[in-house]
């Protein structure tokens, strides 16, 4: 008898928790970068390309990209652990577009580096950042469309029957247009938060960030609600699940964060934003679970614990956090 590989190696809740935490980190870094790029391109800063706040962002973008990629790896791993069938199938249906994501990210990455390394901050910055912007727009669209398709097994099966070459983009735009727009406006919102935070001692920059935070939030609440209204058959299970309470929590906390940002109470505002962020990622997680429950219910998967590898991972994980913390302390600390 050959070993069966279809099992979970720790109880599902541990994987769910790790997924949600790492996906939150990924999305926050992504929002910092993507939202930041949008605001730098479209915001009205004084003497934009010589503005110290703008420069700071430009210097940080490549690092934010490194973090986005790195924090993206973990949730992608966990989602493949729990939903391999759905994720790969949907990715194969859009194979070429999915694969192109990697190349496009590399281009965006180098554009951000080019921008960070270029000495004179002039209109060239605009070109580099625009390249990065277009690339990331593509990546975000493909991600949303592929993950939305992964929630529709009947649809991807049908699509595959028509075309096996991986050149299909999820045609059911209705089901994910607002999901995508919610992601984009959300990125602008969080980007606005960071601009305000970094510009807290620079009134004009703070004002730009504040405006984007306010209007971004209005837009993301609107797109989010429209997306929710469009859930269709999922609406009933959604309303019966904890997700609906999390929606309330996220809304209240987001508005609270906005209020305290305007009051320049940054710590409270950040905490509220962070908690509402995790709560929204959790909502997303629950919605997927509900959408797929008739096709694949992860809670029915065999659990075949691998405690020693898991504990070793945890040790390495803590070690990673400690090491990074230590290195940052070295870097920003006094040098002997």
């Amino acid at each position: 008898m050959l070993p069966d590989s279809n099992f979970l190696s720790v109880p599902l809740w541990i994987i769910d928790t790790l997924s949600i935490v790492t996906l939150s980190l990924h999305l926050i870094s992504m929002n910092f970068m993507f939202g930041g790029i949008i605001i730098l391109l479209f915001g009205k800063f004084e003497d934009k390309w010589n503005n110290p706040i703008v420069e700071k962002f430009i210097k940080l973008f490549p690092n934010a990209m490194a973090m986005t990629v790195s924090f993206g790896v973990a949730p992608l791993l966990f989602v493949q652990l729990v939903y391999p069938q759905q994720i790969y199938s949907s990715a194969i249906v859009s194979g070429w577009y999915w694969l192109l994501v990697v190349a496009v990210v590399i281009i965006a990455y180098y554009a951000l580096y080019a921008s960070a390394f270029s000495k004179k901050t002039d209109s060239r910055q605009k070109i580099y950042l625009s390249i990065a912007f277009v690339c990331l727009l593509y990546v975000s669209y493909i991600y949303t469309s592929v993950f939305a398709l992964a929630e529709k097994p009947d649809l991807y099966k049908l699509l595959y029957a028509q075309n096996q070459g991986g050149t299909i983009i999820n045609p059911d735009l209705n089901s994910y247009l607002f999901r995508w727009l919610h992601m984009l406006t959300g990125a602008v919102t969080v980007g606005g938060f960071f601009v305000a935070l970094f510009g807290r001692k620079n009134e004009p920059a703070f004002a730009v960030g504040k405006q984007f935070y306010l209007w971004g939030m209005v837009a993301s609440i609107a797109t989010g609600l429209v997306y929710m209204m469009g859930l269709g058959e999922l609406m009933k299970p959604f309303m019966k699940s904890p997700a609906i309470w999390l929606v309330l929590v996220s809304l209240v906390l987001s508005l609270g964060s906005l209020y305290f940002l305007f009051k320049k109470k940054f710590t409270v505002s950040s905490i509220m934003l962070a908690v509402s962020f995790v709560s929204m990622v959790t909502i997303r997680h629950i919605v997927r679970k509900l959408a797929l429950i008739d096709f694949h219910d992860p809670s029915t998967m065999a659990v075949n614990p691998q405690w020693s590898p898991f504990v070793i991972f945890l040790i390495f994980f803590v070690l990673a956090i400690a090491t990074i913390w230590y290195m940052l302390k070295l870097f920003f600390g006094k040098q002997k």
């Binding site: 190696s9 973990a74 991972f313 390495f316």
Partner: peptide
């Protein structure tokens, strides 16, 4: 992935340190 998820995850932890 099913058999070695914690190895992949540990690799990811080092990958993150490495990049920083």
């Amino acid at each position: 992935i099913h058999n070695f998820v914690w190895a992949w995850a540990a690799e990811w932890a080092f990958f993150t340190i490495e990049i920083c």
